[in-house]
Design a protein around this nucleic acid. Sequence first.
RNA 1: CGGGGAGUGGCGCAGUGGAAGCGCACCUGCUUUGGGUGCAGGAGGCCGAGGGUUCGAGUCCCUCCUCCCCGACCA
Length: 468
Amino acid sequence: MAKVLTSQADDFPRWYQDVLAKAQLAENGPVRGTMVIRPYGYSIWERIQSEVDARIKACGAENAYFPLFIPESYLQREAEHVEGFSPELAVVTHAGGKALDEPIVVRPTSETVIGEYMSRWIQSYRDLPLLLNAWNNVVRWELRPRLFLRTTEFLWQEGHTAHATREDAAAYATRILREVYEDFMVNVLAIPVLVGRKTASERFAGAINTMTLEAMMRDGKALQMGTSHELGQNFSRAFDITYLDAAGETQYCWTTSWGSTTRMIGGLIMTHGDDGGLVVPPLLAPIQTVVVLVKEADGAGERVAALADELAAAGVRARVDDRTSVSFGRRATDWELKGVPVRLELGPRDLAAGAVTVVRRDTGEKSQVPLDRAVARVRELLDRIQVDLLAAATARRDAATTDVTTVDEAAEAAQTGFARLPWDVVRGEGEARLAERGVTVRCLMGPDGSLPPSEDEPDLVAVVARAY
RNA sequence: CGGGGAGUGGCGCAGUGGAAGCGCACCUGCUUUGGGUGCAGGAGGCCGAGGGUUCGAGUCCCUCCUCCCCGACCA
């Protein structure tokens, strides 16, 4: 492979920046912290949306849209919520050429405005559960932005639901965590995630329980890939989200919210990417296979086009690269940088052999396959790569995870990966001591890996790490 | 806001008082297409802004602006 990127070993953050630029994923916008997502990067986001949206709908939620602008007074109705978000709000004070009577905030999240409308839409227990989701953009003024990982404006989906009982709300928040996020991340992104509970200090502003999915990047740091919250009755009390139960009594609803963002693209890059660039898992890839015309000769161009058609007919997202004005090496490198899982090369030597050269992006392995077996071979490889990427990422994570027994050992081990230790050892002053070394509790898990119903369960395990 | 750096073609950088340059990218032509081909030619600059010193300032002095990195918040 040609060396066109800073290597991961030399400088991981710079490697990340190089990949963004060379794979044409995204670049900085003119206002600090904003992001321009380029067509290839956006096509990856569209694939994410498509997969996540289908899973959300399978859980019964419906899409809706709520406004970008929220009255400042709405945020102030929930004390913890406003306290949590105040430092990062963008506030509109002037519009239409004059000062506004009440400032308008640009949504940092939509709990408040959706709460207002839930209170109007919910009358009786027959209206519950109310299951909503929105695909939109939000703004949180970030002091230290990084493309995809932490930007002032980002794209996401935010789900908001209202239920009759705490148990229903908890069950739904957990269902989304498992059936939407975990399933998508593991089976499509091929990223292994730890599913756990946030500590009180890491909890969402206004939630009674925050659950998280944590992935390990190739540099050993953790990335929160998604969250699901039980909001208790905090927002239903603030926004008067009530219903009449079967006995005719007025009750407050129990609400949830859950979100996943363009940050997942950052996680994708840093989980699977290597010194050759991005590596996209086949099930996610906007382009699963590129058919490269090495050189126009002996009808090779027609064979390339026919091959791409056969692949498309077999359900493979295929693309032709017949830009013979660009040198072969350049084009091979381009597709590697973009992480296309399987590349087919067709040139005179292949034609003479009645074959096509097949290259795996993840391993670099090359083989020659008879033309009439090419489509079947591609489909086998796509399946194989999907499985292998998850296995490789899981192996890397497990190899960089250490069981320890003290806070000091955990802080040390977390400099290069994840550390696991008893929660009882950490709780209290432990979180502050870890923070001194840049380490946080990523999540709490049961001894068997289960999702704890509270942080007071016996024998909980704390997973700690440095995080993005 | 505390500490540390940097502003020079699109991007990355060199240039310590005397002709604005280099690499990549871009355009033209030829060449080469099986791993970022090679050669030749070419286009592109208010050197962050303002003021000062000097015969002469990208370079020295002053003021301002912006950006980046390290700390506290965060999907």
